[in-house]
């Protein structure tokens, strides 16, 4: 089931989804993405931040099928169709893991650690997974 939920309130808030965990190992990344997709029906102003191990969620060439996990990484590419276009990645998190923007599935805005606080402050609702 998943009833079609249309929000009639008309209010628009700034939502920031903070993704801090590995794509696999726990279910947080997948269930965070589900919240973003469902939330898109509410026409809010949505941003996503990938930080710490969360940057791995956007890594190219994931192959979790070999451990019988669903490969939902392609869904990040579809976020554009849901009007979720503001994807931020913390530079230090990438660097600490030997990753660069070229390793990522989607276009993102790389921001410095010291800019993260301002990003959080700019948003009305922060959901951290």
């Amino acid at each position: 089931m998943m009833e079609d939920e249309e929000y009639q309130g008309g209010e628009v808030k700034k939502f920031l989804y903070v993704n801090r965990r590995l794509p696999h190992g726990t279910v947080y990344a997948l269930e965070s993405l589900e919240t973003v997709l469902i939330g898109a029906a509410f026409d809010q102003d949505v941003s996503m931040l990938f930080i710490d191990d969360g940057v791995y969620q956007l890594k190219k060439d994931q192959a979790p099928e070999s451990i019988e996990f669903k490969n939902f990484s392609k869904t990040y590419r579809a976020l554009e169709m849901y009007d979720v276009e503001k994807l931020f990645v913390e530079r230090e998190s990438l660097e600490e893991r030997g990753l660069s923007e070229d390793d990522l599935l989607v276009d993102v805005e790389v921001i410095a650690s010291k800019e993260v606080k301002a990003l959080i402050d700019q948003n009305d609702v922060v959901l951290s997974f």
Binding site: E3, E5, Y7, G9, F15, T35, I38, D124, V125, L127
Partner: peptide, 12 residues
């Protein structure tokens, strides 16, 4: 109920 209830709570 659905996740929409969470998003709605965030808005309201």
């Amino acid at each position: 109920s659905g996740l929409g209830q969470l998003v709605e709570a965030g808005i309201e």
